[in-house]
């Protein structure tokens, strides 16, 4: 494993996590959460756990985001924090 790639991706992951929790629009949270999942999938590919990475790419970045957007479509985008 190459540690510079690891550190860069981990930093992005942490930024995405903080941003997903702190933006005041739930649709933005959905997209940032998808980005978070995809970066997580990259991290697992770097570590060699290819099956886990594949699952996360199809589940976290794909279906979870769709469920999220569908739920926001039926509720509201508004959030106070």
């Amino acid at each position: 494993m190459h540690w510079p790639i690891d550190i860069v991706v981990l930093t992005f992951v942490i930024f995405c996590a903080i941003a997903a929790l702190s933006v005041k629009d739930l649709l933005a949270t959905a997209i940032l959460f998808g980005a978070y999942s995809f970066l997580m999938c990259l991290l697992w590919t770097i570590m060699g756990a290819v099956d886990v990475a594949f699952t996360e790419a199809s589940v976290g970045a794909g279906v979870s985001t769709v469920f999220f957007v569908a739920a926001i479509f039926r509720t509201s985008r508004r959030t106070k924090d």
Partner: peptide
């Protein structure tokens, strides 16, 4: 290869969801 029943099922399901969208 990497993959299996779960991943394939999710991809197939998301193709149906894509049709709905």
């Amino acid at each position: 290869s990497p993959g299996g029943g779960f991943q394939g099922g999710v991809i197939f399901g998301s193709s149906l969801i894509l049709l709905a969208i």
